[in-house]
Simulated scan of single mutants.
Amino acid sequence: MDKEEKISAAQKMLGDFAPKLLGYTDNILFGDLWEGKELSRRERSLITVAALVAGEHSGQLKFHLNYAKEHGLTEEELKEVITHLAFYTGWPKAMTAIMIAKEAFENEK
């Protein structure tokens, strides 16, 4: 693996601006937590997308929608999750999330 492949997405975004936060992100969040055996990566992605929609964390949603697809969720399943959440988290949150999903999915094609 060359040096470029070892640089995480978080490191590419922030460089050395917040090294402690980047360390937690890379080593604990995407290292230890995402590697747990109790839930599959697909299940973790589904939970994460739902939490981001519910909390209206739109800054992280686009990344996690695409990450969820890498873990086996389809665009149709992700749109259904957002639609389902409209009734539990609020219509404005779901509308914001579906617009982010539309943009994320269109940019991939």
Results as ranks from 00 to 15, higher is better:
Lys93Pro: 11
Met99Val: 13
Thr89His: 05
Lys62Asp: 13
Leu52His: 08
Thr48His: 05
Leu46Met: 12
Lys93Ser: 15
Lys69Arg: 15
Leu22Gln: 14
Leu61Ser: 06
Glu75Ser: 11
Asn66Val: 00
Gly72Phe: 04
Leu73Ala: 02
Leu33Asp: 01
Gly55Lys: 09
Pro92Phe: 13
Ala54Trp: 09
His57Asp: 05
Leu52Ile: 07
Leu61Met: 10
Leu65Gln: 08
Phe63Ser: 11
Phe87Met: 11
Tyr88Ile: 01
Arg44Pro: 00
Leu33Gln: 03
Glu56Leu: 04
Ser40Tyr: 00
Gly55Val: 08
Leu61Cys: 07
Thr48Glu: 04
Leu85Glu: 10
Glu80Ser: 14
His84Gln: 15
Asn66Lys: 13
Thr74Trp: 09
Val49Arg: 00
Ala51Ser: 14
Ser40Val: 06
Lys93Val: 11
Arg44Ser: 00
Trp91Arg: 11
Ala68Asp: 01
Arg42Gly: 04
Ala50His: 01
Leu65Trp: 03
Ala54Ile: 09
Ala50Gly: 14
Trp34Phe: 09
Glu76Tyr: 07
Glu38Lys: 15
Lys62Pro: 08
Gly90Arg: 01
Glu70Ala: 08
Met99Asp: 05
Glu56Ser: 14
Gly23Asp: 14
Ser40Leu: 00
Thr83Asn: 12
Thr83Ala: 13
Trp91Glu: 12
Glu70Phe: 05
Leu78Met: 15
Gly36Ser: 10
Glu75Val: 14
Val81Glu: 10
Leu85Gln: 13
Tyr88Pro: 03
Leu46Gly: 05
Gly31Met: 01
Pro92Leu: 11
Ala68Ile: 00
His57Trp: 06
Leu85Ile: 13
Glu76Ile: 14
Tyr24Arg: 06
Glu80His: 11
Thr48Gly: 03
Asn27Ala: 09
His71Gln: 12
Met99Arg: 13
Lys93His: 15
Lys69Trp: 04
Leu22Asn: 15
Met99Pro: 04
Gly59Pro: 07
Ala51Pro: 02
Glu56Val: 09
Ala51Gln: 09
Thr83Glu: 09
Leu21Ile: 15
